[in-house]
């Protein structure tokens, strides 16, 4: 199977064929340590993750709440680097050719790595797309356009503040799917009304044929089911970094139950998503 945008498109085509929404799981690469993180990653597809977002740790994650901030710092302390995250993706890809892997984070570590060397290494590692929080369409020359040329998807965030006037610019160079941030705020803070989410998804669909994944503030199977009824996919992140945090021993190290704590949560959220009544899904 071809990687990059093709792998993401194939996954959403499969979800459509199955008549259900997908579960997108965000986990922080290297959290709480490299070995545990690799085990979590390897277990995600069987637990029900349809798409994986692999967080690239950064010291100054401006759009993230405390849980993901601290997860990133745990990963950095454990020795993760962008190079390490790429190695993590490569190992995952050796055993799974079908689950899309999207790297998510901030631009500076990629800038420091070098854009072209990074894109080459990401493609070689089997990474399919990028979500870079601090690269709006105004800065597409930096990474978005080079990534598209390299065959990787550049997945854009659309937010409640992205009005109809701005949506076309936001969607212009987007591929794979659109990530709708369901409330204005940092990760893990609030929770959006399912009805408002439905209206927002409909608004995006008027501008784009791409699948719409909805995230921010979804942490329970019931919420996941409610959002799954309105969207093509549901994104969950903070609930997993919380699960990692809660599983650590007194010295902050992974406990015997860390991997299972995360995967059990993935299973229950996947059940919620798969059990959702589908309404107007495309």
């Amino acid at each position: 199977m071809k990687g990059g945008t093709a792998r993401i498109d194939a996954r959403f085509a499969k979800l459509r064929a199955e008549g259900r929404a997908g579960l997108v799981t965000y986990v922080m690469s290297g959290d709480p340590d490299l070995a545990t993180s690799a085990s979590i990653l390897a277990g995600l597809p069987a637990a029900g993750a349809d798409v994986i977002e692999l967080g690239m740790a950064f010291t100054d994650p401006m759009a993230d709440g405390p849980s993901i901030q601290v997860a990133g710092l745990r990963a950095l302390k454990a020795g993760i680097s962008l190079k390490g995250t790429l190695a993590m993706a490569r190992r995952f890809r050796q055993n799974d050719q079908e689950t899309p892997v999207i790297l998510m984070g901030y631009y500076n570590p990629i800038h420091a790595f070098g854009v072209e060397p990074f894109l080459a290494a990401a493609g070689e590692a089997g990474v399919d797309g990028l979500i870079i929080v601090d690269l709006p369409p105004e800065e597409d020359d930096e990474l978005c356009l080079p990534a598209l040329r390299a065959g990787l998807s550049f997945i854009r965030l659309a937010t409640p503040t992205t009005d109809d006037g701005r949506l076309p610019a936001v969607l212009a160079n987007t591929s794979g799917f659109v990530y709708y941030v369901s409330y204005t705020g940092i990760t893990g803070a609030g929770s959006a009304d399912a009805e408002a989410v439905g209206a927002a998804v409909a608004r995006i669909r008027r501008h784009s044929d791409l699948p719409v994944a909805v995230g921010f503030g979804i942490r329970t199977p019931a919420r996941a089911a409610a959002i799954a009824a309105a969207a093509d996919a549901v994104v969950v992140g903070t609930a997993f970094t919380d699960a990692v945090r809660d599983s650590l021993d007194d010295d902050g190290r992974a406990g015997p139950g860390t991997v299972e704590a995360v995967l059990a949560l993935v299973r229950s959220l996947a059940d919620g998503v798969r059990g959702a009544a589908r309404g107007s899904a495309s």
Binding site: A63, D134, P136, E138, R156, L157, A158, T161, R166, V181
Partner: peptide, 12 residues
Amino acid sequence: GGRFAAETLMPL
């Protein structure tokens, strides 16, 4: 320089 900001902030 530039505008390296999250989408939520861009309209503002």
